[in-house]
Amino acid sequence: MIPYLQTRLAALALVLLLMSMIVFSFVHLIPGDPVEAMLGVEVDASTKQGLRHALGFDRPLAAQYALWIGRALRGDLGTSVRTNQRVTAILAEKLPITLGLTLAAAGVGLAIALPAGVVAAVRRDSLVDLGAMGIALAGVSIPSFWLGVMLILLFSLHWRLLPAIGYVPFARDPLGALRHLVLPAVTLGLGLAGALTRMVRSGVLEELGQDYVRTARAKGLRAGAVIARHVLRNALLPTLTVLGVQVSVLLGGAVITEQIFAWPGVGQLAVQAVLSRDYPVLQGTILVVAALATVIQLLVDLAYALMDPRVRYT
């Protein structure tokens, strides 16, 4: 286990370093810079050049990268060109908002996928199965940006049941926070539900065919008890793996979901940073999000290793 962990951590460090280089060069490849974004077309060139020089964007790229990565290693991701706030402080404010949304979406996904997947597997090839799988496929196929727009159209503009957009901190107004959470969480969670339902179904199906299930049934255990006590636990392992992989997908989905619902999270921060060429924020955000996804992936793999004795590592 320990050597395995060491290998994984070394690989993680390498991935992060590569990522930082990709992020940096890629961010600076984009034409137009923070000064253009800030001052637009109606400000003369000499004013723009003055600001560019003051901000250090006229220095060689390698020097800028060295400066940035050196500070980043010491936990300093720099200062936003746009808002003049520390990137670490911005992320500390925005990350919990996005993680809250992601968790809620994962909750929505599991709440739909577990019962639907189990029922579909138990009543395999019935109309219930067909229906559940159809809905799962629809969930995977409906793009989140359309779903979000439709949900706003129906629930907010037409029926006026839920607030269309915005974020309310839970501490300020718990009920309002939940009401604002529903539509974005469903938008983001439905696609996940689709992917998970299929995993749960095939996992349960596989376990149902195992000898121990037949033994348990033969011993007279009711089907429900068998599923609850034995099948589900084993069937959830592959589902967990998918959930781990889906974290990166969810964080990506949050980019668009936050844009639609005007959530002040990391996704909107990243899009805005692209549009305003706020290099420090963009670099910091992508690096932290990608690192987060990678670390969660690692944790999921470790959990898998701990829970499933069949998996061995060398």
Binding site: I30, G32, A37, V41, V274
Partner: peptide
């Protein structure tokens, strides 16, 4: 169609045939 900063850079440097604003 360019996003605003790329567009602004092109307009600034006169790198356009037709522009609208």
């Amino acid at each position: 169609v360019y996003d605003i900063p790329s567009w602004a850079k092109r307009i600034d440097s006169g790198d356009f045939d037709i522009d609208n604003t």
